[in-house]
Each structure stands twice: as C-alpha cells, then as structure tokens.
C-alpha cells in the first residue's frame, strides 16, 4: 500500500528559438493524490501537461518546483532507489516500449533482478512465467522466449503491464495505455488493469484523452487544461455534470451516439479562446476555487472527510 502526494508541481521548459530563450510552463501548480485501490484519471488534450506529470512521477523529468511525496502505509517515506520499486509506468505505444532486440522474458526479468525480487536464475524464470500468467499471457512457457514483434499489440501491452508490476510496484502510472490498440482489444486491457488493481490494491493514475473510459475506469477525474487543473471530482460528477467551460467542451466533443446525430451540426456554444484556466471547479468542495495552490489544498482538505 503506497500513497502519493503531489503538491504544487511546476515544470518549465525553456525553448530556444534562435538566440532567444522562451519559457514554457507545461505544468502549472498541479496537486493531486493517489491512494491505494483508487484510480485517478488525468484528462486533457495533447499539450495540456498530462505526460509531463507522468514523466515527473516516474522520475524521468525533474520538476521545476513542487514535491512528490511517496509514503508506505506506515508513513515511511519512499526515497532513492526504492522509489522506482514503488512507482512504475505503462507507456502509450506498446510497439515502441519493448526493445525489439530482447525476448519477452528479458523485459520482465530485468526489473525483477534490478530490484532484487529474485536471486537465482531458476527463481527469476519461474517468477517471469508467473507474471505472464497474471496478465493472461498463456501459455507463458511459449510466450517468454518470443520477441516483441511476434506478439500482437494487446499482448505487448500486457507484457508492458507485467514489466511495470514486476518490481512489486504499488503505484501505476498508465499513460494512455490503450489509445494505440485496436478498439476491440482496449476493453480487455483496461479490465486487466482493473483486476490487477483490485488484487494488489494499486494506486493508479490513468492518463487519457478519452472521457468515456475515464468515467468508467476511474473513481476520480482531474481535468487539465494548459497545465492547470480546471475541474476535479468524482468521475460521474465531472462527466455528467461538468461545471468548467473546458470540461463542457470536452464532453460535447466526445462522440456519444446515444445523444443523437443532430449534435454534430449543432454549433459550439463555448468559445474555446475565451476559456479561463485560472479557476477550477472542485466537486469535492462543491465550489469554485482559484486554480493552483489553494485549489489543491482545498480539495485535499475536502477529501479528508470522505471515505477513501
């Protein structure tokens, strides 16, 4: 059981154009919590800062300011090399995230060895097969020696999930884990993630641009727009009763056959350029707050009273 507190995260990139340097704020005072057994969906368009947050959480980027605190159940903070044992990531593109040169076994065995989950070769092999079976890649004996190009996209993503869980991770960052997969396979992979989460009481951050799966797959939704959190709350509340203009726009844009075809031709009522990302609607508090620091504190305070 591991909990993640993200407080006031800021990430600036400096962009060089010619001789001038420009600062681009990708993530602007974002705070969120991940708790065991719950899934938080991070929703937003490309460039909204979703992936930057994922990279910071998996230590591939350093934040400009702000903190990421990871703590075990008993309150022990997780630091140093222990961090990556607890927090792992599933990448978007299963065709790119596995090394074409190495066998499936290599991909799962390495994290086991790095984090000293197993010691002998036989033990490692057995553990690899176990992991493969957990993600429904059977018969594991025949899958393990294969190389990535011999598997389908869905199978590869299962391998990637097994790899992420191999160190014994309790926090899973899933960065658009199904958007590159064929539609008929997506549900299977999401359901797999759901099952693993229940079994291990994982804390999951589900990053996506797909509102429909965000609603059904997560407990809580955080809507990100231009690096800021503009709306947060329980999944159904955010999708069915959006308050912020940007969330409304997203909900309008998502295909939804049940709302009828006349919706296509209906003109957008919300002017995209007029969207204000300095305010945030917090469904937990039931009120508007300033985006950034105060919103986050308020949200956490509000949730403290709620059963996790």
């Amino acid at each position: 059981m591991t909990t993640v507190h993200v407080t006031d995260l800021v990430k600036d990139y400096s962009i060089r154009s010619g001789l001038r340097r420009r600062r681009l704020r990708a993530v602007d005072h974002v705070s969120l919590d991940l708790v065991p057994g719950r899934t938080v969906a991070l929703v937003g368009e490309s460039g909204s800062g979703k992936s930057t947050i994922a990279k910071i959480l998996t230590r591939m980027e350093k934040p400009t300011s702000g903190t990421v605190e990871v703590a075990l159940d008993d309150g022990t903070p997780v630091r140093g090399p222990m961090y990556l044992r607890q927090v792992q990531m599933v990448f978007q593109d299963p065709f790119a995230s596995l090394n074409p040169f190495h066998s499936i076994e290599h991909h799962i065995a390495r994290p086991l060895l790095i984090h000293e989950r197993t010691r002998t070769a036989a033990q490692t092999h057995e553990r690899v097969l176990e992991m493969l079976e957990r993600v429904n890649l059977t018969p594991a004996e025949t899958i393990a020696p294969r190389r990535p190009h011999e598997l389908s996209g869905g199978q590869r993503q299962r391998v990637a999930i097994a790899r992420a869980l191999a160190p014994g991770a309790q926090v899973l960052i899933a960065d658009e884990p199904v958007s590159m997969l064929d539609v008929s396979i997506r549900l299977g992979v999401l359901n797999l993630l759901g099952r693993l989460q229940r079994e291990d009481r994982l804390a999951v951050l589900y990053i996506t641009h797909d509102l429909a799966t965000a609603r059904h797959f997560s407990d809580e939704i955080v809507v990100l727009y231009r690096g800021r959190v503009v709306e947060r709350g329980p999944a159904d509340a955010v999708i069915l009763d959006p308050h912020h203009d940007y969330t409304k726009l997203l909900a309008q844009a998502a295909p939804d056959p049940e709302r009828g075809p006349e919706r296509v031709t209906a003109e957008a009522v919300i002017d995209r350029d007029a969207i204000d990302n300095s305010v945030c609607y917090d469904h937990f508090l039931g009120e508007w707050v300033q985006a950034g620091t105060p919103a986050a504190r308020g949200a956490r305070a509000g949730r403290a009273g709620q059963p996790a």
Binding site: T58, P81, F91, D93, N99, R110, I114, P167
Partner: peptide, 13 residues
C-alpha cells in the same frame, strides 16, 4: 528517445 529506453530507465536500470 524510443520508449523502451525510457522504460528500462524507469525500471531502475
């Protein structure tokens, strides 16, 4: 810049 390099770094390699 391929993901598998990022992935192996993220797993602590």
């Amino acid at each position: 810049h391929r993901d598998y390099v990022a992935a192996s770094r993220a797993s602590g390699e």
